[in-house]
Simulated assay, not measured.
Amino acid sequence: MVKLEHILLGLFAQRPWSGYDVKKWLSEDGKFFRSNADQSQIYRVLARMEASRWITHTVDPREKRPDAKVYLVTERGRSELLAWARTPYTPVARFQDPDFLVRFFFGGIVDAEALRTLVETELAARKDQVARFRGRDRTQHFASPIPEVDIRRARLLEELTHIRGMAEIDSWIAWLEEMLVSLDAAGVTSPPSP
């Protein structure tokens, strides 16, 4: 699971941010990366990051409002961010987990080959999942269910859920394939040599 610290370091690598701006970004643009990060949690993480010397802050005086701490990444924070971004990516079982997407979003800090490898690794893992699980026996077995279980409805709902899951992973695979084509076309990455 991606750590909030790495998301924040990725943000601070791009520009200085206040804690309020971080909370606003996580609630809007970054909501697919990390949910349920409240203001107090963000400030606790920022304090830990500052104690670790990954970030520092300046004070931005505000008229008629409390002054704001504006956080900047330090050289030590830069090193931590790059070390995280350069670690080999290992796909998790659920493709909806944000680790890949966070790494992809901040992929501007790794070289072109590492970015392509990231996408190819995720794509291979999801294609493998489809190959291994798409045709499996999905028969539901009910043994002494509670009286409220409507078996016919439960089987239908399981099937509809499976159909939705297939559509989601197929869409994800198509998006990954499109990303490889787009990155190559933009000259960001290069296709592998034949």
Rank of each mutant, 00 (worst) to 15 (best):
S79K: 14
G187K: 12
L176P: 11
W172Q: 10
Q140W: 01
A85V: 05
R76C: 02
K3L: 08
R164L: 08
D38W: 05
I146L: 06
A93K: 05
R132W: 02
A68E: 12
R15E: 10
E159V: 05
W54S: 02
I173L: 01
A112S: 12
F100D: 07
Q14C: 04
L11R: 02
W175V: 01
W84Q: 00
L183V: 03
G10T: 00
K3D: 14
A37E: 13
A114H: 10
S18N: 01
S171K: 07
A83N: 12
R34V: 08
L11N: 01
S190L: 15
K31T: 10
F12A: 08
D21Y: 13
R62S: 06
A68P: 02
V70E: 00
S171Y: 02
V130I: 15
I169E: 00
A112H: 02
M166I: 08
P88N: 06
D97E: 11
S52P: 02
P91S: 04
V149D: 10
T90E: 09
L176K: 10
P192L: 13
G187I: 12
A112D: 11
F32S: 13
W17G: 05
E159D: 08
A131M: 13
E177I: 03
A37Y: 12
W172E: 11
F32G: 15
V102A: 09
P192H: 09
H162A: 12
G107W: 13
R103M: 10
W172Y: 09
R78N: 11
L8S: 04
G19H: 04
I109Y: 07
T161D: 13
T90I: 07
S52Q: 14
R153K: 13
D150T: 04
V110R: 07
R62L: 09
P194R: 14
S144R: 14
A51E: 15
M49Q: 09
D29N: 04
P91N: 03
P16H: 07
Y20T: 13
V73R: 12
R138V: 14
R134L: 12
L8Y: 15
S52W: 14
S18M: 01
Q140D: 08
F104A: 06
D128K: 11
W17S: 02
A186H: 13
L101Q: 04
Q14I: 05
G10Q: 02
R65A: 14
D170H: 03
L183M: 10
V181A: 03
S144A: 10
E148W: 10
D128L: 15
V149T: 01
R138E: 08
I173G: 05
R103G: 00
K64S: 14
L26F: 14
E178V: 07
H57C: 09
L9M: 09
A131F: 09
G108L: 08
E5V: 13
P61Q: 09
T87I: 00
R164A: 03
I55Q: 12
E148N: 02
V92G: 09
I169H: 02
I169K: 03
Q129A: 15
E158I: 00
Q39L: 09
T117V: 13
T56I: 01
V110H: 05
R94F: 04
F133K: 14
M179C: 15
E63N: 08
L9Y: 06
F33G: 11
E168W: 08
P91T: 01
L8T: 09
